[in-house]
Amino acid sequence: MNLTKTNTSLFNRLRFVLVDTSSPGNVGAAARAIKTMGFSELVLVNPRYPDVLQRDEAIALASGAQDILASARIVETIEQALLGCNFAAALSARLREFSPPVTAPRALALQLAEDVTLTGAVIFGSERYGLPNEIVEKCNVLINIPANPDYSSLNLSQAVQVLAYECRVAASAQETLQGEVAASGIGFQGDTANLVEIEGMFAHLERALIEIDFLDPAHPKKLMPRLKRLFSRAGLETEEVNILRGIANQILTKRRRLDR
């Protein structure tokens, strides 16, 4: 199917982010995987080799997707990789006690395809260690690929291919429906808050909770990760983030007045 890549098309709203990748071959194979499914945005965070995009192994395994390598970006931090995104999904074979809500690739793909306000990133960890907890906790969902429980380890580029495929299938199923809904003008939905706005809100809320002695910074007991998990399920809009920041600001203001 030849899909029309409109501004709201998932093909223009989704990026693939590789963190601490060590193998140039995996970078090339990942570029090939996303191109075969119609995607084009690849971002590398702190790869082992700074010149990975020019390495022979990467170019060879890209096998016709050299344009994806040529346009790929290399950044130093996950925050830089997620600039402009309002939704992030971390992929991991290892479930975490305080992770965001866990979802399957197909459910994630449907969510991204149906909600045209989402500008998403799918994040993959290093071949050896996966993703660290501090990155997983920044994400809206944790993706777990259903696999053989006795041998669930996928190669990095294979995992990229699975996610890219599911997102393409979801995009092809929703493209016509999205156009019809947009044309009807029925219903209301605010702008989805971006990840920078949400992180700022959490920092603001944390200060307020400390001020009212609800949160002990010396013994936080995973309160903030639990709150992040709660709000990840809600799917915050910008106006909702502003309301929560207003509440936090009022708490801090009232506390300062009482302390005078």
Rank of each mutant, 00 (worst) to 15 (best):
I198C: 04
N242E: 11
E175P: 02
G190D: 13
G185K: 00
G246C: 14
R233Y: 13
L252P: 02
F231A: 03
L177G: 06
G190P: 07
I212Q: 06
A183N: 08
Q250S: 15
H219Q: 13
M224V: 11
L223P: 00
A248K: 04
G187D: 01
E199V: 03
A170S: 10
A193N: 04
T176S: 15
E166V: 04
I186Y: 06
V181N: 01
G187Q: 03
L244D: 10
D216E: 09
E175L: 07
S184G: 04
L177Y: 12
Q189Y: 04
E175D: 13
I186F: 08
L205C: 12
L205V: 15
I251N: 09
L195Q: 08
A203Y: 03
R226A: 00
I247Y: 14
A170D: 02
E206A: 09
I186L: 12
R226L: 05
E206R: 15
A234Q: 12
C167M: 09
K222F: 12
L215P: 02
G187M: 03
A208T: 10
L205A: 14
A193S: 11
R245F: 07
L223T: 12
F188L: 13
L205K: 01
G190S: 14
F231L: 13
K221M: 06
L230A: 11
Q178W: 03
E240I: 08
S232P: 08
E237M: 12
N242M: 09
A173P: 01
G200F: 01
V169R: 07
A170V: 01
R226V: 03
L252A: 14
L215I: 02
L244F: 11
A234C: 13
S184P: 03
N194C: 08
V181F: 00
A182Q: 13
R168E: 02
K222T: 05
T192V: 11
E211R: 14
R207W: 00
D213T: 09
L230Y: 12
L215A: 03
E206Q: 15
K222A: 13
T192C: 14
A182S: 07
E206F: 07
V241F: 12
A182L: 14
R207F: 02
M201P: 04
N249G: 15
E206I: 06
M201E: 05
M224Y: 05
E199D: 13
I198K: 07
L195G: 00
E166C: 01
A183T: 09
R233M: 10
S184Y: 02
G185A: 04
S232Q: 10
I243N: 06
A203Q: 15
P217N: 05
A208V: 10
T238S: 15
E180P: 00
G185P: 02
L215Q: 04
